[in-house]
Design a protein around this nucleic acid. Sequence first.
DNA 1: TATTGTTATACTCTATAACTATA
DNA 2: TATAGTTATAGAGTATAACAATA
Lengths: 146, 146
Amino acid sequence: MTYAKDMPVDTALASELRTTVMRLARRLRNQRTDDSLSLSQIAALGTLVRHGPLTPSELAAHERVQPPSMTRLLAKLEAAGLVTRTDHPTDGRQVLVAVSQQGLDMIKADRKRRDAWLAQRLRDLTPEDREVLHRAAEVLGRLAEQ
Amino acid sequence: MTYAKDMPVDTALASELRTTVMRLARRLRNQRTDDSLSLSQIAALGTLVRHGPLTPSELAAHERVQPPSMTRLLAKLEAAGLVTRTDHPTDGRQVLVAVSQQGLDMIKADRKRRDAWLAQRLRDLTPEDREVLHRAAEVLGRLAEQ
DNA sequence: TATTGTTATACTCTATAACTATA
DNA sequence: TATAGTTATAGAGTATAACAATA
């Protein structure tokens, strides 16, 4: 690739990275062939797996949706048996939402399916390219966390 | 990072890459502070910029939406003065949609705004990290194109 | 008869506003 | 009075089915 002479190097790299990351993300997202759950539902379930039980409000804040939207989303997840609700031990207003074993199984199956597509393409790369990606994954992770 | 002993290396790398790429993509997507256009509209406009004038059907296929959805989306873009329609020279059924100068300006401004956030974070990295990302961007681009 | 594009209609997801129960 | 959660209602986005115009 080439840099325009008058362009700061960071901007050119940012532009290139943004394009490729977004494009790859789109490909990865489209790998979802099983349409039983929406992306929002998968995301919420994944957050519960990572963080452990949360209240609906906390989950809504994590997913950047409004509480009423999370109410509806959780109703569907609960109807599908993927999450369970338990009353908060001391505060009667609050509810704790946790992933059920069935929900955990579904998330794992979903991740496995997504990884399969990417893993096949990684096998077609040279070992050098894989090494670059391995090192880049750590740096990208730090970027995303900020 | 660590690899499970019984896990093929490609699967572990795929899992790690998928997580970080999706997370970073989410961050980049959320950078859109100006809510004048939806993501679908921005995407369609961007495709027109990259590919040049297309028919509504071609554009729908590119964006993986059904033709009626593209009809509605284009109606909004046209109302906003961001695209223009011209009759196909030889086939009276077809229409060619092209980006207007105003649409081009909007796409450029949008990209600039998105790049700014990422460029600032890249400046905080070490030169070595940036070099890794520079090399990885090329590899990721190949992955996404497949 | 097949193809391109549009219109009619319905469903999903998300939002704001109003309401209920509890602190 | 404030907070957690839900219900009521509306808007955006996309889908399928039916229709009009042209090849």
